[in-house]
Computed example of a mutant assay.
Amino acid sequence: MSEQDKGVEEVRVFKEFVRVAGLPIEIDTVRKCYPPKPDIRCRYHGGEWVYFELTELCDENLAQLDGRTLLQRSDRLWVADPAERIVRKKLRKHYPVSRPVELLCYKRGRLAAPDSEMLALIRPLVVQYPGPFTRVWFFGERLAQMVWSV
């Protein structure tokens, strides 16, 4: 996936998250940013500008397989759960911005663990060390909710 395609997908996921979570974000202010800044810049209805860093919780092995390959295989697919490593890596990052940064961890079917396990994994990590984030969110297959806030 090209960087441009990744950006389009991040904006799509973010807008879907805003809708499902009912966040008071002015959708027309959503803009894709590029490193070293966080992924998304937008404004809450109250006028506060904010950045969101997005990270997909996905297993690289599962992500590399397309549906046909998966269906053609007769052996079981065992996937390593990389979510903890992915979240810890994001928590260690720093961003050259003066506005608040929120983290959105999302899952799109490329991780074997259910949403409840992801919440149970993410919450203690961010409570212990929230990194540069003022809020941390989880957007799974069945829910969108805040995991932690300052």
Rank of each mutant, 00 (worst) to 15 (best):
D39T: 06
D39W: 11
W137S: 01
R76T: 01
C58S: 12
S74V: 04
G7M: 02
K107G: 01
K37L: 15
L111H: 12
Y95P: 06
T69C: 03
Y51F: 15
V13A: 00
R31N: 10
D59W: 02
L91Q: 04
Q4V: 12
Y129D: 08
F14E: 00
P36L: 12
W49A: 12
P130L: 01
V18F: 10
L62M: 15
V18Q: 10
C105A: 05
P114S: 09
F139L: 03
P114D: 13
L103E: 09
E56R: 09
V127E: 14
P38N: 07
L77F: 15
Y34T: 05
L91M: 10
R73H: 04
L91W: 13
V13G: 00
G47V: 03
P38E: 00
I25A: 06
C33V: 07
I27T: 14
V20S: 05
E117K: 13
H45R: 13
T55C: 13
D75I: 01
S98M: 10
C105R: 01
K93L: 11
L111I: 15
W49D: 14
A21M: 07
N61Y: 12
D28Q: 14
D28I: 08
I25S: 09
F14K: 01
D59V: 00
G131C: 08
G47D: 01
E141S: 09
K89T: 12
R31G: 04
Q128F: 10
V13Y: 00
P124N: 07
S74Y: 03
M118R: 15
R92Q: 14
V30S: 13
L62W: 15
T134W: 04
P130Y: 00
E10V: 00
H94L: 11
E56D: 03
V101G: 08
G67H: 12
C105P: 03
P124R: 11
R135W: 02
V79M: 04
H45Q: 09
L70G: 05
E53M: 12
E56V: 02
K89R: 15
S116Y: 07
G47N: 01
G131L: 11
V87I: 15
R43L: 04
A113M: 14
V30R: 09
L121Q: 04
E141A: 07
G46K: 03
L54Q: 03
L91H: 07
F17Q: 01
V101M: 13
K37R: 15
G131N: 11
D115A: 13
V20H: 08
W78L: 12
S2N: 13
P36W: 10
V8N: 02
V30C: 11
L54A: 02
V18K: 14
K32M: 00
Q128L: 07
E60N: 11
L23S: 03
R19T: 10
C58N: 13
L77R: 12
E10R: 00
C105E: 01
P35F: 11
C33W: 06
G140F: 08
I25V: 15
P96C: 10
S74F: 02
E60T: 08
D81L: 11
V126F: 05
E9M: 09
I86R: 13
P35A: 13
I25G: 10
